[in-house]
Computed example of a mutant assay.
Amino acid sequence: MKAAVLKSFGSPLVIEDVPDPTIGTGEVIVDVVATRVLSYMNEVLDGTRNYALDLPIVPGPGGIGRVRAIGPDATRLAVGDWVFCDPTVRSRDDCVAPDIALQGLTAAGPGGMLLQKHFRHGSFADQMRLPTENVKRLGAITSEEATRWCALGTLLVPYGGFLAADLRPGETVLVSGATGNFGSAAVSVALAMGAACVVAPGRNEKILDDLVRRFGDRVKPVRLTGNEDDDRESMRRAAPGPIDCVFDIMPPSVSPTVVRAAVMTVRAYGRVVLMGGVGMAGGAGLELPYPWIMRNCISIHGVWMYPPDAASRLIAMVRAGQLRLEEYQATAFDLDHANEAVEHAAANGGPFKMTVIRP
């Protein structure tokens, strides 16, 4: 089969023929039809993000495809089914604290690297092998619709955060990083889950206006100034009442003071979800006052990805019309132009934009 292979950090992807994946018990082979390219994939491939990858490797986290082959433990999947390939691979020998690897992207710790040695190759290829439980049925779609369904990979990240925070209908949410690719997805997911109001802070007024245009007056935009105390007060005033949940998805380049301003808007007994990258590239970490956390009974949830059943639940929300994949504008490349796709994604990573490879 044809694949885009990363052989060394900082080098272009090599488009070449590699052996077809072979199936084992507990595994599924999928023909990849469409896979999204992360806006920061260039930083993964050149080593800037220092992601754990055992090279050479076929990158690409998740995608949309059709089942080619199933193992003997699959009882619902059938050859030809349209499926979402969930890249969050978990070890099966510890249900309490499983090791995790993001197939085709990175791994956490020594256990995650062991997983990556087997489920190592991602979706920038004609085919990929996944654990059976990571293959989620979509129902009937067309090949053209597969491109749009790639948005699941973006939407699932904030969905996992809100599930961890037990977001409930009628609550008020603040999304720190609302003008970014994952942050704008968080706005749409929070509203789909029944949030009464989403406070959306940011510096880009054009994007803030676009969020209001898309979702109406349940979105309350706040233009940030860079002054921590003033911004915190502006965010609180924008909310119609106490802020129940703060969701942070800021990238590594952002100052922790920006994140702290947002986090400390949450009400007493409120919840904070940290899914961003502050501190991952070095520099100061996020400092929060111990007395404020303790006396206000603040719950802080560090969340990486989402629970195993999240993808199926999110697919059901899309099918029910609660989430609109039509919000996303996609630009597609074939596999031979994977390097161009990575460059395009880096230059066009705004809200509701996708770069997709269609092998």
Rank of each mutant, 00 (worst) to 15 (best):
E43K: 13
E340A: 08
V258P: 03
V187Y: 12
Y40E: 14
M317W: 00
G111Y: 02
Q116I: 01
T179G: 06
S255C: 05
A311F: 08
R148G: 03
G277C: 09
Y40D: 13
E171F: 00
G109W: 12
V96C: 05
L335C: 03
D99E: 08
S39V: 14
L114W: 04
L53M: 14
V199Y: 01
V79C: 01
V79A: 05
V212F: 03
A284K: 14
P291F: 14
E171P: 01
F182E: 11
A320G: 06
R271S: 06
R260N: 05
G177C: 05
G153I: 11
H301W: 01
N204R: 15
P56K: 15
D94C: 08
F333Q: 02
D334V: 13
F84H: 01
R223A: 13
V67M: 02
A195N: 10
G321V: 09
E145V: 08
G24F: 06
A34N: 02
D231R: 03
I15F: 08
D309T: 13
W304Y: 12
V187R: 04
A151R: 00
V258Y: 00
A284S: 08
R68T: 10
I249N: 01
T179M: 12
G183D: 10
N42F: 14
P252E: 15
P201S: 11
L191I: 03
V14W: 04
I298R: 10
G112L: 03
G47M: 07
A4I: 11
V219K: 06
A200N: 04
E144W: 11
V246E: 08
L335D: 02
N227P: 01
R213T: 14
I57W: 10
V272I: 08
V28D: 01
M128W: 05
I300L: 08
A97C: 07
A74D: 05
R214A: 05
H301S: 09
I357Y: 05
D20C: 07
G71I: 07
P158M: 04
S91R: 10
K206T: 15
L114N: 07
G349T: 10
Q116C: 00
R68E: 12
A341G: 00
K206C: 13
L6C: 09
Y51Q: 14
T172W: 04
